[in-house]
Write a protein that binds this DNA or RNA. Structure first.
Lengths: 256, 256
DNA sequence: CCCAATTTGTTCGTATGTATC
DNA sequence: AGATACATACGAACAAATTGG
């Protein structure tokens, strides 16, 4: 898709401020000129001349583009404003802002994880090299024995979510990859900030860990069906573990 | 989740510009004070005093927040900067910017639609009121007979995507709702901008329409399983229809 | 190590635009 | 219509960062 106009109202009066108009014009310029990440945009002075506007106006436009993650700016000789590929981190943060105001529950997230994680697992079967598989295995070390303290339990939960983020990294489908990572990131954040982790349940903890190990084997063997089924079972287990928690709204957790 | 820092690097040196720091501080202020959409932030003069910075610096910070959709500003008496709930339109646009640089294919989108649309359908069974169901039915009018022209075919394709956006509106799960809408929006945009629609195939067209009608019936009857199965079949049909198209990268379509 | 050139970053004072009463 | 309260925009000067000699 082309860089999309960021206006809120679909059919609103379109009365944008000057910086907003400049930002839109520059986006269009990038598309029209076919500029790629790394390419340099005209400098401030140049833009001031082209648009016939004050420096502050141009600078505000740049901030808009920068906030969207579309450009980066550097000072000094050879500096300037450069087209930048929107980073995953930035996209995550911007999307998280949207859900900040929604009443997203743990159950909501797990509904999607249940549907998508098995899909990811299946698509990865037989497609990971040894280095990737070893990295996944190495991650198990972080939760290879029951947690002794709440602190440790928290760390283990985050580590087990990292397993999913690592899988997401290798997905061919950018949309699927982003989503899995996004959900793991949100769950991770909740865990860290508010101690959302299951009450100690060694049995479920053991099962979850075993599912992940079996999954890695299925991936190594290139068995897509086994990978899908194992991940599905893993998600069901994790979901059950989460259901123990009340489905408190995430905002209630974090927005004191 | 709390309004998330928008920095790119996870463990980067954290050297933010002043406007960026001010923007972060204001975000934190909103969270700490528990401000809700509609609440007024301190005025420019006030912020200049608090932060001890120049007007332009403060203004650039406001642009950053505005670009993220977190605030709106109004001029005049009683005006100022107000906390704003990030709109779906804005979130869509910001996320689309991320995928602009990825090589997202039609197949990628359909992989997720296939997994998520049935989930949505099932969760909606028996939960729509007559007005909503009637609106869905009314939408069929837009594609109740085979398209005569390419123009018409395009319009019909967009209308049938609108059916899914309408369903998304009613989802309880905000994440699921957003995603379905996002995907329909992207497919719609591609259709409009580049004429991506199936080559005339009356048989598949008829089947797709019939699936949607059967789906509405299942939703009316509160039959979740039927709704899920029907939507799954609908997605398979649509996917097959799309596979006829080569899986060209979306960017190739739109970024001339 | 310092100096000079280049480019963005920041400040301040002033003036204009806009909505409310 | 006029006064008021706010954001919006301008322009000139100065500061800071980076690069290369």
């Amino acid at each position: 898709m082309r860089p999309v106009s960021t206006r809120s109202g679909a059919s609103a009066p379109a009365r944008l401020s000057r910086p907003e108009r400049v930002a839109e014009a520059i986006k269009q310029f990038v598309v029209d000129e076919g500029l790629a990440p790394g390419d340099r945009l005209p400098g401030e002075a140049d833009l001031i001349a082209r648009f016939g506007m004050a420096k502050s106006t141009i600078r505000e436009a740049m901030r808009i583009l920068e906030a969207q993650g579309l450009v980066k700016t550097r000072t000094g000789p050879g500096g300037g404003t450069f087209v930048h590929e929107v980073s995953r981190t930035r996209a995550r943060a911007l999307l998280a802002n949207y859900f900040y105001f929604k009443n997203l529950t743990i159950a909501d997230i797990y509904q999607l994880r249940r549907a998508l994680e098995p899909e990811l697992a299946a698509s990865l079967a037989g497609r990971l090299d040894d280095a990737a598989l070893d990295a996944l295995t190495a991650n198990f070390a972080a939760y290879d024995r029951p947690a002794a303290t709440a602190e440790e339990e928290r760390a283990q939960h985050v580590a087990s979510l990292r397993f999913h983020a690592m899988l997401a990294e290798h997905a061919d489908n950018p949309l699927l990859s982003f989503l899995i990572d996004f959900m793991a990131s949100i769950l991770s954040e909740i865990t860290i900030n508010r101690g959302l982790y299951a009450p100690p349940n060694p049995e479920l903890w053991r099962k979850g860990r075993e599912y992940q190990k079996r999954l890695v084997e299925a991936l190594r063997d290139g068995d897509a069906d086994a990978a899908r089924e194992t991940m599905a079972a893993h998600m069901d287990t994790a979901n059950a573990l989460m259901q123990v928690q009340e489905a408190r709204a995430i905002q209630d957790f974090l927005a004191h």
